[in-house]
């Protein structure tokens, strides 16, 4: 059961990562490209948080009902959860700047299609 769950988590992350990257690379529209990157980033975050998962363990929050001498023995690994929070913040910052430049380009040239952008560039 533990192994199946772990494989499912990793598989979910890998599907989102590869799917997102494929969307980002093949899309001709910048907004679709950004959506692809957001999906891929979510996939990586799922992979990252899955590395801390341990079957049948509790969330790493201490409370008075679960006093124990060795909390690390009953909880999942909290480090990847903290890392994912940082990663989400970075993802938001990158996406917002990506959107900003796409919007500014659209205001000036009236297009966000990659082919038309290359033609404008030439």
């Amino acid at each position: 059961m533990a192994l199946v769950l772990e494989i499912l988590f990793y598989l979910n992350g890998i599907i989102l990562l590869t799917g997102g990257l494929i969307i980002a690379i093949i899309s001709r529209n910048i907004i679709k490209m950004i959506i692809g990157f957001v999906l891929a980033h979510t996939g990586v975050n799922i992979i990252l948080v899955s590395t801390g998962y341990i079957f049948n363990r509790m969330p790493p929050i201490l409370n008075k009902f679960q006093q124990t001498n060795n909390p690390a023995a009953i909880s999942v690994d909290p480090v990847p959860q903290a890392l994912v929070l940082t990663s989400i913040v970075i993802g938001v910052a990158t996406t917002s700047l990506f959107m900003f430049y796409a919007l500014r380009y659209y205001r000036d040239n009236g297009t966000i299609d990659r082919d038309s952008m290359e033609e404008h560039n030439d």
Binding site: L21, I30, F37, V44, T94
Partner: peptide, 19 residues
Amino acid sequence: IKFITGTSIGALLMLTGIA
């Protein structure tokens, strides 16, 4: 926009490697 595309791919790869 091209630069962000390239570096976003780099950041995704790096995070996957770290995981």
